[in-house]
């Protein structure tokens, strides 16, 4: 039983990774990240059950709390970016390169 759950967890994780790398919409990227986190949760609870230990279950709860908090902060950032740029295409957000003019418009 355990290995099937783990395989499912790995598949979900890979789908999440693929979504992060391929998609350009930050909302979808957030969803993909959620998928990866929940794949990890699945692996945690699987191991907890296999070992008869509640530590893994508790870890999963912590992950869920963090994920919720992260989504809140992330959505706030996305909204702010959209307000100033009228676009939320992830490939337009290249300010971190440090090169002047790398960004189409100025944030100010």
């Amino acid at each position: 039983m355990t290995s099937e759950y783990l395989i499912l967890s790995a598949v979900l994780f890979c789908i999440g990774v693929g979504g992060v790398l391929i998609r350009r919409n930050p909302l979808v990227i957030f969803m993909s990240i959620e998928l990866m986190l929940n794949a990890a949760n699945l692996a945690l609870v699987t191991f907890a059950r296999a070992r008869g230990d509640l530590g893994g279950q508790a870890g999963a709860f912590f992950v869920m709390v963090c994920a919720a908090a992260e989504v809140v902060v992330g959505l706030a950032i996305i909204v702010t970016v959209f307000r100033s740029k009228r676009s939320i295409d992830i490939d337009d957000m290249t300010l971190l390169s440090g090169a002047p003019g790398a960004e189409g418009g100025s944030l100010a």
Binding site: V20, L21, L96
Partner: peptide, 14 residues
């Protein structure tokens, strides 16, 4: 490599 493109950063991490 440091082009500011988020997805290429993510790719490098992967």
């Amino acid at each position: 490599m440091q082009g500011g493109n988020v997805r290429s950063y993510a790719g490098v991490v992967v």
